[in-house]
């Protein structure tokens, strides 16, 4: 079963706010000068910010903010965030892989940016009501 697609807009302001809230001040997430110096196309989103947005998608699908029992991803491609008002967009989809007798639902999640997968092996297990 495929779950409803969720999209998340990401701007530079979001990265600054996430840096402050998470304590991850790596300059590749706020300085183009630094990011390009280390071979990136420009400022990229924190991998953990992308994972947090996917976490929002998962809890929304699960219908409860405390439903996640296991959540893992592999970061495969950086999410470049341009310095403009629109930023970029992360599109999150998922399929239900398994529903267990113990009331757990296992999801295979896909996250893309500009049509390219930014995560692989993204999986979540959520406790479903009942």
């Amino acid at each position: 079963m495929e779950l409803p697609t969720q999209t998340f807009r990401v701007t530079r302001a979001d990265l600054v706010r996430y840096a402050g809230a998470s304590g991850d001040f790596n300059p590749i997430h706020w300085s183009d000068r630094f990011a390009t110096k280390v071979g990136l196309p420009g400022v990229i989103a924190h991998g953990m910010f992308t994972m947090a947005l996917v976490g929002r998608a998962v809890t929304t699908w699960a219908g409860s903010p405390d439903a996640v029992v296991d959540f893992g991803v592999r970061f495969t491609r950086p999410v470049a965030v341009p310095d403009d008002d629109t930023g970029t967009e992360i599109v999150v989809t998922a399929v239900v892989r398994e529903v267990t007798d113990a009331g757990l639902t296992r999801l295979d999640v896909t996250a893309t940016c500009l049509g390219e997968k930014v995560l692989s092996q993204a999986r979540a297990t959520v406790r479903t009501a009942g």
């Binding site: 953990m48 893992g72 970061f75 092996q121």
Partner: peptide, 11 residues
């Protein structure tokens, strides 16, 4: 950062 995983006993 390559992979990240959380396995929760509770939130």
């Amino acid at each position: 950062h390559g992979d990240q995983r959380f396995a929760y006993t509770r939130p």
